[in-house]
Design a protein around this nucleic acid. Structure first.
Lengths: 324, 324
DNA sequence: CTGAAAGCGCTTACAG
DNA sequence: CTGAAAGCGCTTACAG
């Protein structure tokens, strides 16, 4: 229709330089008129480019992952890339390696548990990005989980708390995730630095969920020597913790302080003191870094984003009559 | 390596019947040894099948959409299909029609506002599924929003409320979504049937967010004649409403009742009376219906899923001294 | 049951 | 600046 060869059409449509303006105009006009869309399969097969990145996430309904995904998608969309989403609940997705040869890059929002799997990922032959962990050869975006947790616990210590419990993200699932471990390390570091003895019974697995937070809190409240403060590794679990505290007839922060992690959109509603982390931004940055690698062959980089202590109403000095 | 032609490899690997068992075994062994993966581009180009469905959603961090997406992904994954995710905040994604010729089907979690766009979708030439609206030719999964809202408002009326406000999902955005309209209709229907006069100032836009809910509630509470109950079109907004009520020094449900919609995972924590809808299931069902069409050429079907009134602690009879 | 061959719809050196 | 042609890696009638 534009009286040119398919090669020229291809060049014109992709905006390559070596096409005369009048030819390009003619091609574009015809393309519009025919409502033409290039076949991605054919294009990929011929060029080797997929214009797609695969994202593997263990969850999608949890605030942090949803926000990260949001950031990734926005960035990819504006770069004209598609996002193929894989929700991998049990960390077994790599056995199928479904996205192999289908994507230009893979973004891992969590790491599969087994080290061999990590090898598999590397063997995908495409750039890999990871969130929350810095792995050699991967593009990654992280926060300083150790220091952030330490900051949270120091806030409690600074107010006079000595008996501080921790509700952790899930560590027993088949999915391994570095942040829970690092936040645990930060918690212990803060206590140790303050000369406070570590008590294993004060560390309870909250299974990453609201319900898990409720159960973990119930367990902590039933301890013979009840803690005066709880550091919770995610805001969602913290909401569950607050619920249990309220139902037990205790007041927060008068009887017991609670500090979360995330700055979930509902943290403000719960008046929850927490450590804010930029979830959306982490996703966007990770996407940008991986695109730079795919598009321009930039080297893999690691970026650490800052966190911030947000003091609200769920933390206060411990009750004076504690430990009587 | 298996001493067979590429055609036979193709047949063997895809499990087609006309391959001898020993040949198939040889091919599979070689395929394993070489760590062979078929090229999706080449496969798609040759067969015309993409094994991919595109999903367009306006949000991903909102509970309902995240759950729906979860259901869709699970179903697609077990069918060996990939999910390409498009987050379309402003309803303008169709102008780019990015997924055209790339997916076997498109799932719309919300509808673009302009009717012409709907035409475009139909012109994609692939099966389309929609959530929450039943459009001729589309596969769809819905709930009865009118009846569900009516049920919620009747619950309030049954307890003696006569001054009932409504906080709506966003209707002004460039994205049109049927449920807000239907829930509004159900609200009005319930009031009218009970012989209660409709008061326009009692309908406030909550913009679909927690913050919007807070603002909407503030507006309602400042009304000269304050409502005794509020029907909120989503649990997330209801949480914001509860927050405002609490901060205004009012008690829920003693001073004012609140009923939500969704049965969000935190509804229980807020002790929120609400209308439960099966979000995950709606997604899974929608995916199953579209797969049946893609895979077996089944006709487009519409399924309506049930909702359920969950009575918790945020609704009670109005204060006796009302309207004095 | 298996192979040879065409073809899917592009992109990309290579000439000119 | 443009065209002819090869080739990307599969799938699928068509023979045999």
């Amino acid at each position: 229709m534009a009286k040119v060869s398919s090669g020229t059409v291809s060049r014109a449509l992709r905006g390559l330089p070596n096409v005369s303006e009048k030819t390009r105009a003619r091609v574009l006009a015809a393309s519009q008129a025919l409502n033409y869309i290039v076949s991605p399969s054919a294009s990929s097969l011929a060029s080797g480019r997929m214009s797609t990145v695969g994202v593997i996430t263990p969850f999608i309904s949890r605030w942090f992952f949803a926000e990260v995904l949001n950031g990734i998608e926005q960035e990819l969309q504006s770069a004209g890339f598609d996002l193929v989403l894989y929700i991998d609940t049990d960390g077994k997705l790599f056995e199928k390696l479904p996205m192999r040869r289908r994507v230009d890059a893979v973004l891992l929002l969590t790491l599969p548990s087994d080290v061999p799997d990590v090898e598999d990922v590397i063997n995908l032959g495409v750039p890999v990005g990871s969130l929350g962990v810095d792995i050699p050869g991967f593009s990654s975006v992280t926060i300083d989980d150790v220091a952030s947790a330490e900051m949270a616990v120091n806030h409690l210590i600074g107010m006079g708390h000595r008996s501080i419990a921790m509700v952790t993200l899930d560590k027993e699932s088949s999915i391994s995730f570095q942040p829970p471990l690092d936040r645990g390390a930060g918690y212990r570091k803060a206590l140790t630095n303050a000369g406070i003895e570590l008590r294993p019974e004060l560390e309870v697995n909250g299974r990453s969920t609201v319900e898990g937070g409720e159960l973990a809190a119930a367990q902590l409240l039933s301890l013979p020597s009840r803690p005066t403060a709880i550091f919770v590794q995610s805001d969602e679990m913290a909401m569950g913790v607050l619920h249990t505290i309220r139902r037990a007839g205790l007041r927060c922060p008068e009887d017991i302080s609670v500090i979360g992690f995330d700055d979930h959109q509902l943290a403000r509603v719960f008046d929850l003191t927490t450590v804010a982390q930029p979830a959306f931004q982490q996703g966007a940055l990770l996407a940008r870094q991986i695109l730079a690698r795919v598009l321009h062959g930039d080297p893999a980089t690691t970026t650490e984003l800052p966190t911030q202590l947000i003091i609200r109403g769920t933390t206060a000095p411990p009750p004076t009559h504690q430990l009587r």
